[in-house]
Amino acid sequence: MPYITLSDQIKKLHNPQRSDAFVKKLRDAIREGDIDAADTPGRFELPKKFAKRGGETYTRKAKDLIIDGTPEFEAWFAKINKELTPARANGKIKVTPEAIEAGLVDFKVLAAETRRKMGASFEKGQKLGSSRAAGSKGPGRPKKTAQK
Rank of each mutant, 00 (worst) to 15 (best):
D39I: 05
R88K: 07
K94E: 06
R31K: 15
K92Q: 08
K63P: 02
S136C: 07
A37S: 10
D36M: 02
T85C: 03
K63T: 06
I100Q: 00
R60W: 01
I66D: 01
S136R: 15
K52I: 02
F77C: 01
N15K: 04
K48E: 14
L46H: 02
I80Y: 00
K52Q: 14
K79A: 13
D28H: 12
S131Q: 15
A120Q: 13
E56A: 06
D36Q: 07
A29T: 07
F77S: 01
A111Q: 15
L84P: 03
P16M: 02
I10F: 03
A133R: 08
A133Y: 12
V95E: 03
I67E: 01
R132Q: 13
A89C: 03
R27M: 11
R115S: 14
T57N: 08
T145W: 09
G91I: 08
S19A: 15
V109L: 12
D106P: 06
L65H: 04
E83Y: 13
E83H: 14
S19Y: 01
K61M: 12
A111I: 09
G140S: 14
R132M: 15
R60K: 15
R115C: 08
E98S: 08
I30P: 01
G33W: 04
N90W: 06
L65A: 05
H14V: 07
D39C: 03
V105G: 00
K82E: 07
P16Q: 01
E123Y: 10
Q9H: 03
K52A: 08
L13C: 05
H14D: 07
Y58M: 05
T114F: 07
D68N: 10
I35W: 00
K61I: 08
A89I: 06
G140F: 03
E45A: 14
K92T: 05
E72M: 05
K94T: 07
K25N: 06
S121P: 01
K49V: 10
S131W: 08
E101Q: 14
G54S: 04
A78V: 04
D68F: 14
D64G: 05
Q9D: 13
A51G: 04
S130P: 00
M118Y: 03
F50I: 06
G91V: 09
S130G: 07
Q17I: 00
S131H: 13
W76M: 04
T59I: 11
N15E: 07
T59K: 13
K92A: 01
E32A: 13
P41V: 04
T59R: 15
L104E: 01
D68S: 12
A38N: 09
S130N: 14
K144F: 07
A87V: 13
A62P: 02
K52Y: 06
T145F: 11
A78W: 03
I4M: 14
D39W: 04
D68C: 08
L84R: 05
S7T: 06
A133K: 10
E113Q: 11
S136I: 13
R88I: 08
K61R: 12
A99K: 00
D64K: 08
K11I: 03
E74N: 11
